[in-house]
């Protein structure tokens, strides 16, 4: 990321440099948005719907340029599909840190958003994955239908297309501390 981050900072200062950064944005965002490789990481029930069914023949992630990757180092997108327990929270954070920038997170299902059915009377479930890693798109449901998770991916693509390369050099991504 290093060079790509620095380039726009210098470019913007030269007259007409803004034009170059805009085209650079368009190219980079287009390529990022259309090749969201996701990490094969499912914990509970949502994994069947979000990763297996949606990846299989009827719904087919491949249409959106999404291919699964078994290693976090090759993935751009983490779909948190399922309940995150306190024991797992630390590992989720490590996985997130191992992914290379730019990286995105979709929180899928009630559990990943706010603990879902395990919010009350429960001593071991993390109430929302956004307490440990930043989340870009939330997809509610228990479990969400494959259509809604695909909609979530499209929303994420829209979000990526609005990014500016120059923003990357200014903002540090927020990573919350685990409890």
């Amino acid at each position: 990321m290093g060079v790509v981050q620095k380039v726009p900072v210098y470019l913007e200062k030269i007259p007409g440099g803004g034009l170059i950064t805009t085209s650079l944005d368009a190219v980079l965002n287009w390529s990022r948005a259309s090749s969201l490789w996701y990490l094969l990481f499912g914990t509970a029930c949502c994994a069947i719907e979000g990763l297996m069914c949606t990846g299989a023949s009827r719904y087919d992630y491949d249409r959106f340029g999404m291919i699964f990757r078994a290693s976090p180092r090759q993935a751009d997108l983490m779909i948190v599909a399922g309940t995150i327990t306190n024991k797992m929270a630390k590992r989720v954070k490590i996985l997130y840190e191992q992914m290379s920038e730019p990286k995105y997170v979709i929180a899928m299902g009630g559990c990943a958003i706010r603990g879902g059915p395990f919010y009350y009377d429960c001593y071991s479930v993390l109430r929302g994955v956004d307490l440990v890693i930043p989340v870009d798109v939330y997809v509610p449901g228990c479990p969400p239908r494959p259509e809604s998770i695909l909609e979530g991916c499209l929303k994420l693509q829209q979000k990526i297309k609005k990014q500016k390369v120059s923003d990357w050099s200014k903002t540090e991504k927020f990573i919350p501390e685990p409890k």
Partner: peptide, 15 residues
Amino acid sequence: YPMRRDWEGKDFIRM
């Protein structure tokens, strides 16, 4: 020991 019936924890929210 969380499964004891009178257990209360600091993160435990009753419905």
